[in-house]
C-alpha cells in the first residue's frame, strides 16, 4: 500500500513536469506580450524583460523556471509587481479551497440522500420530483443560480450577506449553495442509477431473503456497493471545486484563485498562469490518487499495486 502510494507520488511529479513543459511552451505560442502599456518606452520594456529574465534564450528561461519551481519558487507576477506567485496563490487558494470544500460536502451529502431516496422510490412521485430537481440542477448554470440566490436571500428577504469573504461564516452560505447545486444534481443522478442497479442485484435479493428490512438492505448492502462507482465521480469533482470557480467568485466578490487565474490570461501574466495550472494539475492528481485509495478500502476486489 505505502509502496504503491509512493510510486503514485513519483508518477505525479513526473506528470507535473510534463504539464509544466507543455504549458510553458504553449504560452510562448500565445500572441502578444505582457508589456502592452503604451507609455512604456522601448528602453523600459527592455529593462523589464531583463528583470524578469525574458531576454534570455527560451531554453534557458525554461530551465530557470524548472529549477525555480523545484525549489518552490514560481516566479514573480507581472501584474502585481514584486508579488511572488507562491505568495499570491498562498493567499487566494485557501479561500477558494474552503468555499469548494463546503460546496463539495453539501453537494455530495445532498446527492447521496436524494439519489438513494430516488432509487428506493423508483418511478413514483418522489423519484419524479427529485428527477426534475436534479435535471434543473444540472442544466441551470451556477452563476444564474448565484444571481437568483442573491436576489432572493440578499434583496427580497435579506438573510445573508451577498458579497465579501472572511468577515463572517454567513458570507459563505450563498456562494456555497450556488456552487453545490451542480455537484448535488450530478451525484443524485449517479447514485440513483448505481443504487437501482445494486437493488436489483442477486446479493440484494439474498439480503432480503435473510429477512432484512428495506432500510437494512440499503444501509448494509446496497449503499456500500453503489458507492464504489460514485467515488470515481467525486474525485475529479473535488479537484474542480477546491481550485476555485471564476464565476461564483466574481458574483460574490470573493478573492479566490479562480478569479485570479482568468484575469492572468488576458494580461499574459505567465508566472501566475503557470502557477495556477500546476496547482490545479497537482490537485486533480492527488484527488484521483485519494479516490483510488478509497476505492481499494471500500472494494475488497481492488488491490493497489
Amino acid at each position: 500500500m505505502w509502496k504503491y502510494i509512493l510510486k503514485r507520488l513519483l508518477l505525479l511529479i513526473f506528470t507535473l513536469f510534463l504539464v509544466v513543459t507543455a504549458t510553458f511552451f504553449l504560452m510562448q505560442i500565445m500572441p502578444g506580450t505582457p508589456f502592452t502599456n503604451p507609455k512604456l518606452t522601448p528602453e523600459a520594456i527592455a529593462q523589464l524583460k531583463s528583470t524578469y529574465g525574458l531576454d534570455l534564450p527560451l531554453w534557458q528561461q525554461y530551465l530557470n523556471y524548472l529549477i525555480g519551481a523545484a525549489h518552490g519558487d514560481f516566479g514573480i507576477s507581472f501584474q502585481y509587481q514584486n508579488q511572488p506567485v507562491s505568495m499570491l496563490i498562498g493567499q487566494r487558494l485557501p479561500i477558494s479551497a474552503q468555499l469548494g470544500a463546503q460546496a463539495l460536502v453539501v453537494g455530495v451529502i445532498a446527492g447521496l440522500f436524494m439519489g438513494a431516496a430516488s432509487a428506493r422510490n423508483k418511478n413514483n412521485k418522489i423519484d419524479g420530483t427529485l428527477g426534475i430537481i436534479s435535471t434543473l440542477g444540472i442544466s441551470i448554470p451556477s452563476f444564474i443560480l448565484g444571481i437568483i440566490l442573491v436576489y432572493l436571500f440578499g434583496f427580497k428577504w435579506p438573510l445573508f450577506p451577498v458579497s465579501g469573504w472572511g468577515d463572517s461564516f454567513s458570507q459563505t452560505i450563498l456562494p456555497t449553495l450556488a456552487l453545490a447545486m451542480s455537484p448535488a444534481a450530478i451525484t443524485t443522478r449517479f447514485v440513483r442509477s448505481e443504487m437501482i442497479e445494486s437493488l436489483s442485484s442477486d446479493y440484494v435479493q439474498l439480503a432480503k431473503a435473510k429477512g432484512l428490512s428495506a432500510k437494512e438492505v440499503v444501509n448494509q448492502h446496497a449503499y456500500r456497493n453503489s458507492m464504489i462507482p460514485v467515488l470515481t465521480l467525486i474525485g475529479p469533482m473535488a479537484a474542480g471545486l477546491l481550485t476555485g470557480s471564476t464565476l461564483i467568485e466574481q458574483i460574490f466578490s470573493i478573492p479566490g484563485i479562480g478569479q485570479q487565474f482568468v484575469l492572468s490570461i488576458p494580461s499574459k501574466d505567465f508566472p501566475v498562469i503557470m502557477g495556477t495550472t500546476i496547482v490545479y494539475s497537482a490537485m486533480l492528481m492527488v484527488m484521483i490518487l485519494i479516490t483510488d485509495i478509497l476505492t481499494a478500502i471500500i472494494d475488497p476486489r481492488v488491490r493497489l499495486q
Binding site: 442485484s201 442477486d202 446479493y203 435479493q205 439474498l206 439480503a207 431473503a209 448494509q220 448492502h221 456500500r224 456497493n225 464504489i228 471500500i298 472494494d299 475488497p300 476486489r301
Partner: peptide
C-alpha cells in the same frame, strides 16, 4: 438458497 453463487454474495462484505 439462490441459483448463482457468483453473484448472490455481497462482494464488499
Amino acid at each position: 438458497i439462490f441459483q448463482d453463487p457468483m453473484t448472490s454474495l455481497d462482494p464488499t462484505m
